[in-house]
C-alpha cells in the first residue's frame, strides 16, 4: 500500500524495512557492512576451530591405533564430549575463557575433535593388512609406511569426517551469540530481540549457503587429492 502524503515534512519511509518484511533487498543494501563482518567472523571461527581440531585429531587417532588400549578411552571420552549440548559446552568453558572468541573456538574444537578422531581412526583401521605387508616387504620403514601408504588410504574416511565436522561447526557457531561471538548468529540473536524479520532470514539463509559451499569445496578437494577413488569407480 502506498503511503499517503499527510503534509508532514519527514514522512516515514515506506520500504520493506519499515514494513518489516521477511524478504528485503534494502536490508542487504543498507547493512552490507555488518552482514559482511558477521560472515567474516563466522568463517574465522569455523576455520580456526576445524583446523585446530584437525591438528589435535591426527596424533590422537595415531596414538589410539598405536596403543590398542588407548582406543577405548579416547573414543568414549569424545562420545561424552559430543553428547553435551552446545549451549552447555560453551557455558562450561566460561570460567576458563570468559566472554571471548576463544571460548567459542574451544567449544567447537571439542566437537570437531570427536568427529575427526572417529573417522581418521576408522580410515586407518580400514587399510588392508596385505597392503601394509607389501609396503614393509618393499622395505618401507614405519614413518614412510604411515605417510605414503596408510594416511593416503585413510584420506576418504578422514575427509568425510572433515566435511561433517565443518558443516556442524558452521551451524553451531550461531550458538556463540550467547557470548557475543556467533558470527551470523549475532545477527539472528539481535534480530530476534528487535523482531527484525529480514535480518533473521538473511542471516539464516547465509548460514546454510556457507555450509553448503564449504561442503562442496571440501568435496572438490577430496576428489583432487584422492584421484584413485575415481579411477577405481570409473
Amino acid at each position: 500500500m502506498p503511503s499517503r502524503c499527510n503534509g508532514r515534512v519527514t514522512a516515514p519511509p515506506d520500504d520493506c524495512l519499515a514494513r518489516n518484511e521477511w524478504l528485503c533487498g534494502a536490508y542487504l543494501r543498507t547493512r552490507r557492512h555488518i552482514v559482511l563482518d558477521a560472515v567474516l567472523q563466522h568463517l574465522q571461527l569455523t576455520t580456526a576451530s576445524v583446523l585446530i581440531g584437525l591438528v589435535l585429531a591426527v596424533p590422537l587417532a595415531l596414538l589410539a591405533r598405536r596403543w590398542g588400549w588407548a582406543a577405548g578411552p579416547v573414543l568414549a571420552s569424545t562420545t561424552v564430549l559430543y553428547t553435551i549440548p552446545s549451549l552447555a559446552m560453551f557455558s562450561l568453558l566460561l570460567p576458563l575463557y570468559g566472554l571471548s572468541a576463544t571460548l567459542v573456538v574451544a567449544g567447537l574444537v571439542l566437537y570437531s575433535l570427536t568427529l575427526l578422531v572417529r573417522n581418521i581412526l576408522a580410515g586407518l583401521r580400514a587399510v588392508p593388512e596385505e597392503t601394509r605387508q607389501a609396503a614393509r616387504g618393499m622395505g618401507y620403514g614405519p614413518i614412510r609406511l604411515l605417510l605414503t601408504v596408510e594416511l593416503p588410504l585413510a584420506l576418504p574416511a578422514a575427509m568425510a569426517g572433515l566435511r561433517i565436522a565443518t558443516v556442524s561447526a558452521i551451524s553451531l557457531v550461531t550458538v556463540g551469540a550467547i557470548v557475543g561471538f556467533g558470527g551470523l548468529g549475532n545477527l539472528i540473536y539481535a534480530g530476534m530481540n528487535t523482531y527484525f524479520k529480514a535480518q533473521v532470514l538473511t542471516a539464516s539463509v547465509l548460514c546454510v549457503v556457507i555450509a553448503v559451499a564449504a561442503d562442496l569445496l571440501l568435496l572438490g578437494v577430496q576428489r583432487l587429492i584422492t584421484p584413485w577413488t575415481r579411477a577405481a569407480r570409473g
Partner: peptide, 9 residues
C-alpha cells in the same frame, strides 16, 4: 547444515 538456533528464531 541448518542451524537449530536459526530455525528456532
Amino acid at each position: 547444515a541448518v542451524p537449530t538456533f536459526a530455525v528456532l528464531v
